[in-house]
Design a protein around this nucleic acid. Structure first.
Length: 434
RNA sequence: GGCCCUAUCGUCUAACGGUUAGGACGGAGCCUUCUCAAGGCUCAAAUCAGAGUUCGAUUCUCUGUAGGGUCACCA
C-alpha cells in the first residue's frame, strides 16, 4: 500500500460471547489508530459459526461499545453469514485454478463431513513484518493442506477473513497476538488470490493474575465489559485503563481523555509483553474520574440515600463523607446495604463497654460527656476541652456516643451532620448507660 | 511435544550503549483532631542466568532457563 492511502481498520468480533475486556482493548487500539490517521473502522460480525453465534451476544457487543463511548463508523455490522455468495465466488475460482480442491475425508468423529474444501499448500516460508514485533517467519509446511471451507456455502474463518479484508480495503490488521499463528495461512490464501497484504500489528494479550490469557471460562464474569458497567465503573475510566495495558505515552501522565489518547497513542510503542489486568489500578483510575465528576457523583449518592432512607434533606456533609470513600459507584450501594450509614439516620445502639477510651473510668467519661454536651455547639471549645483532659478521653466517648461505631468520621463532622439537638440527645443517651 | 512470541520492583511501565535504574498502582511508616476515610511526606521493592561484542551493557549477539500463545470441518 502507498503512504497516502487512507487507513482502514476493522473490528471483527465473533458473536459467540459477551463483549470481553480484551476484545474491547483490541477495538480501542484499532479505534485510536484509525482516528489519529483520519481513517475508517469497519464493523464486521464474524458469525460463520451458526451453532455458536447468538443474537444476544451481538446485542451485548453493540450495547457495551455504545456505553464505552467508542464506536466503529457504523453500528450495523456487516455479517459474514450474509456473504456466502461472495465467498463461494472466490472459492470456485480457487478450485478452478487448482489452488484448492474438494477433498474426500475419512470420518473419524461424528459430525464430520465426508467432503470438505482444502487449500493446496505451496509449502513455503512466509515472512511478514509486524508493526509491533518486527519480522516474523513461519514455515507453512506443517500446516498441510488446511481446510478453508466445509462446503461451497460454508467457508471457514481464514477464508472469510481474507476475502473480507480484501473487499473492504483493509489496510491494517490490528488484533490480539493469539492471531499471530493464523497469519501465515491467511497470507497464503491472500497470495493464492493475488490480494495485497495488509500491514499486521499484533497486540499483546491481557492476562489474568495467573498470567494466562483472560478468558470467561477460566476467569469468570469479570472479563465482560458489562460487569464493569453494572458495578458502576465509569466508561472513561475503563477506556483509560485498557489503553494503559500494553501502551504508555512515555511520560508520567496516566489520566487521558479519549481525545488525548487519540493524540498521544503510538502503535510503535505498544509493548510486546502481555499485561496483567490489575483491578486495583482500574479502581484507582476510576476514583480519579470520580473526582473529576464530583458534582455528578454527589448527585448519584444523594439519590441513592433518598431511595434507602426516605425522601428527606440529605446533609451535604454526609454526601461528602461518602464521596471520599467511593472509588466505584457500587461502593455506595455497599455502604448503604452494610448498614454502615444507619447511625446518620437512626439512633445507634451503644455497647457501654466501648464508650470508654483506654484506661478511662466511667466517672471520668460521664463527666467529660456532660461537659461536652453543654458546649456541643462550639467546636473550638470542645477542642480546647479535649486538649486539656486528653484528646482520646474526650473525643472517643463523644464520637462513639454519636456513631455507636469504632470506626467513623471524626466527632466534629458527626455533630455537623447530626445537628446540635440530636447530638445532645445522643450524648445524654450514652451518659444514661454509664 | 512442534511452531511462534515474550522476559526491568508484586503489578503497569520509563531509561540516544554511560542514570544513585525513574514514575504510577498496591504495601509499610509518619503527620494532619481519638478511630476510619481523604490528603501530605517518607521508605521498601526490579534489570531471569551464563557467555560474547565493547573502555562501558537493562539496552546489541548467542545459548540456556522460565512463562505465554497456537496447533479444529471455532473464530
Amino acid at each position: 500500500m502507498s503512504e497516502t492511502q487512507k487507513v482502514i481498520v476493522r473490528y471483527p468480533p465473533s458473536p459467540t460471547g459477551m463483549l470481553h475486556m480484551g476484545n474491547a482493548r483490541t477495538f480501542l487500539f484499532n479505534y485510536l489508530f484509525a482516528k489519529q490517521n483520519g481513517g475508517q473502522i469497519v464493523f464486521r460480525l464474524e458469525d460463520t459459526d451458526k451453532e455458536r453465534s447468538k443474537k444476544e451476544y451481538e446485542d451485548d457487543i453493540i450495547e457495551n461499545l455504545k456505553w464505552l463511548g467508542i464506536e466503529p463508523d457504523s453500528l450495523s455490522p456487516i455479517k459474514q453469514s450474509e456473504r456466502t455468495e461472495i465467498y463461494k465466488k472466490y472459492l470456485n475460482k480457487l478450485i478452478d485454478e487448482g489452488k484448492a480442491y474438494l477433498s474426500k475425508e475419512e470420518i473419524v468423529e461424528s459430525g464430520q463431513r465426508n467432503k470438505v474444501i482444502r487449500f493446496k499448500n505451496p509449502n513455503k516460508k512466509i515472512k511478514f513484518d509486524d508493526l509491533i514485533r518486527g519480522e516474523i517467519e513461519f514455515d507453512t509446511t506443517e500446516l498441510k493442506d488446511f481446510v478453508i471451507a466445509k462446503s461451497l456455502n460454508e467457508p471457514i474463518y481464514h477464508l472469510a477473513v481474507v476475502i473480507d479484508d480484501f473487499e473492504m480495503g483493509i489496510t491494517h490488521v490490528i488484533r490480539g497476538d493469539d492471531g499471530i499463528s493464523n497469519t501465515p495461512r491467511q497470507i497464503l490464501i491472500q497470495e493464492a488470490m493475488a490480494m495485497p497484504r495488509p500491514i499486521y500489528a499484533h497486540l499483546p494479550m491481557i492476562l489474568a493474575s495467573d498470567k494466562t490469557k483472560l478468558s470467561k471460562r477460566k476467569h469468570g464474569e469479570q472479563v465482560s465489559v458489562s460487569y464493569y458497567k453494572e458495578k458502576g465503573y465509569l466508561p472513561e475510566a475503563v477506556i483509560n485503563f485498557l489503553a494503559m495495558i500494553g501502551w504508555n505515552p512515555g511520560t508520567d501522565q496516566e489520566i487521558f481523555s479519549i481525545a488525548e489518547l487519540i493524540k498521544a497513542f503510538d502503535i510503535k510503542k505498544v509493548q510486546k509483553k502481555g499485561g496483567i489486568f490489575n483491578i486495583e489500578k482500574l479502581r484507582w483510575i476510576n476514583k480519579e474520574y470520580i473526582k473529576l465528576q464530583k458534582n455528578n457523583t454527589e448527585e448519584i449518592i444523594n439519590q441513592k440515600l433518598k431511595e434507602k432512607f426516605g425522601d428527606r434533606m440529605i446533609h451535604p456533609k454526609l454526601i461528602e463523607i461518602i464521596f471520599e470513600r467511593t472509588e466505584v459507584i457500587f461502593d455506595v450501594d455497599m455502604f448503604i446495604e452494610s448498614g454502615e450509614l444507619d447511625y446518620f439516620f437512626n439512633k445507634p445502639k451503644l455497647d457501654k463497654e466501648k464508650i470508654l477510651w483506654k484506661g478511662e473510668s466511667k466517672e471520668e467519661a460521664k463527666k467529660h460527656l456532660e461537659k461536652i454536651s453543654e458546649i456541643s455547639d462550639n467546636k473550638e471549645k470542645i477542642m480546647q476541652y479535649a486538649e486539656q483532659i486528653g484528646k482520646g478521653e474526650a473525643l472517643w466517648p463523644l464520637r462513639y456516643a454519636l456513631s455507636g461505631r469504632e470506626k467513623s468520621p471524626d466527632p466534629f463532622t458527626l455533630i455537623e451532620v447530626l445537628g446540635v439537638e440530636e447530638t445532645i440527645k445522643r450524648i445524654q443517651n450514652a451518659i444514661q448507660l454509664l
